[in-house]
Design a protein around this nucleic acid. Structure first.
Lengths: 228, 228
DNA sequence: CAAATATAATAGTAATACTATCAATATCTA
DNA sequence: TAGATATTGATAGTATTACTATTATATTTG
C-alpha cells in the first residue's frame, strides 16, 4: 500500500492554482511547509509573508503559485479528499457483500490518519488535522456558488456521492441517502473536533471512535428491523 | 408567544462584551445593523469601520462595546442559541410523553426561522442565516480552549445537553446520546447550507425539511425495533 | 450648575494582502 | 555555446484592516 501510494497523483482542478505546485521544487516546499505552518498557527494567522520567510523564498514567488491563501486551502482540501477517495475506492472495489462494503467505506472515511503514509512532501497526519479544523472555512464564504461552479469542490462531492451510492445499495428504500452521506462525512470531522475541545458534547474518546458511532448510526438507520 | 418573547432577556456571558449593547441606544444599533451587514456581505468582509459608517457612528465607539468582530460574532451566536433554548424549553416543559417531547424538541432545534418574531432590534430570520453560514467560524480557532474556559459557549453546550437528556429519556441504553445530540444541532445547520449551495449533497429541498430527516434519523437510532 | 459619563472626531501604527518592476539565475533550445 | 526564455528573488509601493490614543463635544445625573 505505502509503495503504491507514493506513485499516485491526485488530480486537482487546475483553476485552483496559478502554477502547479507539483511542477517544481519551490511548489512542493510551499505545500510541505504551509501544512506545517497552518497546523501550527491556524489558518487565520498564516500568511504568505510568513511562509516566505519559513521556506526562505519570497512572498511574491508564492503568489506565482496561488492567488491567495484561500486558494491554497482549497488545494490542500482537494488533495486530502482525493487521497481519502483513493483509499476508499482501493479498499472497497471487489467487495461483494454490500453491508461489508459500506461498513468498510465508513471506516475509511471516518478514521483519523495516524501515520504519515508519505507522499514525499505531504504530511497526511497534519493535513487531516487541518481538514478537521479548517475545512468548513473553505466553503462558508460568499463566493461559494461561484467557486462551486468552477469545480473547486468536485472531489468532495464525488466522495459524498460514492457513499450515497453505497447507502442506496444497502437499503434502496431509505429516504435520505444523500443527507446521511453528507452527515457522515461532515459529522465525522465535527466529532473529532468535539473530542478535542468539547468532550462533554460527544461520546467519542480514547475508547469510542467516531467510526464506531457512525457505523452504528448508519446501520440503525438503514436496517431498523434487524440491527442491534 | 410574540408578546412573551418581547419581554425576555437572553443572559449572555458578560466577558463577551466590553459594554453591554443592550444598555444603550448605540449598543442596540450596533447589534441591529451588524446583523444586517454580516448577512449581506459575509463575516469576512464585515468591519467595524464599515459598521460605523452604516450606523453613522464612529469606529472607536464600537470598540467600546466589543473588542473585535470575533467577540461580536460570539455575542450574536450566544443570543441566537439562548433564544432557541428559550423556545425549546417553553415548547416542551410539561410534556409527559417522552417520545413526543423529543420530537417537539428536534422540531424546534432544526426548523428555520421564517418570520421575525421581533425582539425589537434583532432580526431573527437573518440571525438564523448568519448562524448557518458563520457559526463554525466562532469556534474553529486556535483560541477555542481559552474561550471555552471563559464560558463563551455555555449556552450552546447547555442546549446540546438538554437534547442529550431527552434522548436518554427515550432510550437509556442508546450508547451515543451526546454525539447524536451534537450531530443533530450541527448537522441541521449543515443540511440547510447544503440545500442552498450543494443541493446534490442533501435530500432536503422545498418538500423535505432537515427536521423530517433528523426526526427520522433519531427515532430510527433510538428505537430500531418499532420504528418505520 | 458642576461633575461624570458617553460619544465623536481625528490621528496614528503595525500588519495584511496584495501588485508592479526589475535584476539575477537557471534552463532549454537553435 | 550564445541567446532566448522562464523562474525566482529583491525591493518598493498601495489600500485596507485592526486596532490604540488623545482630545473635544454632547448628554445625563446628582
Amino acid at each position: 500500500m505505502e509503495r503504491l501510494m507514493q506513485s499516485i497523483r491526485i488530480g486537482i482542478n487546475d483553476k485552483i492554482y496559478v502554477k502547479d505546485p507539483e511542477s517544481s521544487d519551490l511548489g512542493k516546499r510551499i505545500i510541505e511547509q504551509s501544512i506545517l505552518m497552518i497546523d501550527e498557527m491556524g489558518f487565520e494567522s498564516f500568511t504568505f509573508k510568513k511562509l516566505g520567510v519559513c521556506i526562505k523564498s519570497n512572498e511574491s514567488s508564492i503568489y506565482r503559485y496561488f492567488e491567495n491563501k484561500h486558494k491554497l486551502l482549497l488545494y490542500l482540501a482537494s488533495w486530502y479528499w482525493g487521497w481519502v477517495e483513493y483509499k476508499m475506492v482501493f479498499a472497497t472495489t471487489g467487495m461483494t457483500d454490500k453491508n461489508e462494503k459500506l461498513k468498510r467505506a465508513i471506516e475509511i472515511l471516518t478514521q483519523t490518519v495516524k501515520e504519515d503514509v508519505s507522499f514525499s512532501h505531504i504530511n497526511e497526519v497534519l493535513l487531516n488535522k487541518i481538514v478537521i479544523n479548517e475545512y468548513s472555512k473553505s466553503y462558508l464564504t460568499k463566493e461559494v456558488d461561484q467557486e462551486n461552479k468552477e469545480g473547486y469542490f468536485v472531489i468532495y462531492k464525488r466522495l459524498v456521492n460514492r457513499l450515497h451510492e453505497m447507502i442506496k445499495a444497502v437499503n434502496e428504500s431509505y429516504p435520505y441517502p444523500s443527507s446521511l452521506a453528507s452527515t457522515v462525512l461532515e459529522g465525522s470531522l465535527h466529532q473529532y473536533f468535539l473530542k478535542e475541545h468539547f468532550p462533554m458534547l460527544t461520546d467519542c474518546n480514547d475508547n469510542i471512535t467516531p467510526t464506531e458511532y457512525f457505523t452504528d448510526l448508519v446501520f440503525r438507520a438503514l436496517n431498523p428491523k434487524t440491527y442491534g
